[in-house]
């Protein structure tokens, strides 16, 4: 007889959900351990990062500078716990690095930094494998990504440039200057991934300073928009596949996400943008995520 209670996921999807949950646990631990950092955005992005790095991205974690890779740039640098945890899970660097997030002498800075080459012998001045740009001050990333995409296009290289952006940073003029340029230069090799969680620090975006409706605005800037559920990992992977197969106009992925996703008491609450969980809150979050992990019944060694 069919079991109606338990949702049936494809093996691929179960694996992606398993990885996203593990990454969420790592995010909670990093921010709690550092006693500083940003949880809500990072948790909401875990499904997208997992879907990108485990199935959609052309990359070699052990050869981060592989010339044929897709590039991933991050503009909303405060969400970097999800980037670091994903890169570690994918094998770019050892997971033990995560426990030194935001600590003195750590390569994992509070906002990601990029150096093209080793600056000196100290650990902090080594490039972080997989991190391709410096961010933190909101609104700068899409310009960096557009410049990179333009350089690739002019060199007739096939690499694709992904760029994560938050909805809050669509309040910065520079973001729109970058969209305008990419539209003008027809940068179909640039794929912005917008985290549309409708929160910023002091409240809900549409109450503080609305950026909506994003699809209409983006289309007016020369873009096509693919609107997805930011927690549907297969839909996201499909969107990327189709965009990579070739598009008429530059195409952005607008991901509708729930901030704090996976931890019930953090979901959709702007207050959790940069709040540090207490010992009890962190423990409760880990318990919730552990239950989710167990319910997946996934054996990571099965393949």
């Amino acid at each position: 007889m069919e079991n109606l209670a338990a949702p049936q996921f494809s093996p691929d999807l179960v694996r992606l959900k398993y990885l996203a949950t593990k990454i969420r646990m790592a995010i909670i631990k990093m921010v709690h351990q550092a006693q500083s950092g940003h949880l809500a955005g990072a948790l909401g992005l875990a499904d997208l990062y997992t879907a990108l790095y485990f199935g959609a991205l052309k990359h070699h974690p052990f050869d981060p500078n592989w010339s044929q890779r897709d590039y991933v740039l991050v503009s909303n640098g405060h969400t970097c716990p999800v980037w670091y945890a994903t890169l570690a899970e994918a094998g770019y660097f050892p997971k033990v690095w995560l426990s030194r997030f935001r600590q003195l002498d750590s390569p994992l800075q509070g906002h990601p930094h990029f150096f093209p080459k080793i600056q000196d012998e100290t650990e902090i001045n080594q490039p972080v494998p997989g991190v391709e740009n410096t961010s933190g001050p909101l609104g700068q990333g899409l310009s960096q990504a557009a410049g990179l995409a333009l350089s690739l296009k002019r060199a007739q290289k096939p690499n694709v440039v992904f760029c994560f952006l938050s909805d809050g940073e669509h309040q910065e003029g520079q973001t729109w200057e970058a969209y305008m340029l990419a539209g003008q230069y027809h940068l179909t090799n640039l794929v912005p991934i917008i985290d549309h969680n409708n929160i910023q620090i002091s409240g809900r975006i549409d109450q503080i300073m609305s950026v909506n409706p994003l699809p209409t605005k983006l289309r007016a800037f020369g873009w096509d928009v693919w609107q997805i559920n930011g927690h549907d990992q297969l839909e996201f992977q499909k969107a990327i596949r189709l965009i990579k197969a070739g598009v008429r106009r530059p195409t952005a992925i607008l991901a509708e996400t729930i901030s704090g996703r996976g931890v019930s008491f953090m979901e959709n609450k702007f207050e959790w943008h940069g709040k540090i969980p207490s010992q009890a809150e962190a423990a409760n979050a880990i318990t919730e995520l552990t239950t989710q992990l167990d319910n997946l019944n996934y054996d990571p060694h099965s393949t």
Partner: peptide
């Protein structure tokens, strides 16, 4: 978008007609 950090949150609440929130847009 940093009223708590720069200690303007109470001001924003008490003096709504003397407060302007511009969003993440420093220019």
């Amino acid at each position: 978008d940093l009223d708590e950090s720069v200690r303007l949150a109470t001001f924003a609440h008490n003096f709504p007609n003397q407060f302007v929130e511009v969003g993440v847009a420093e220019q």
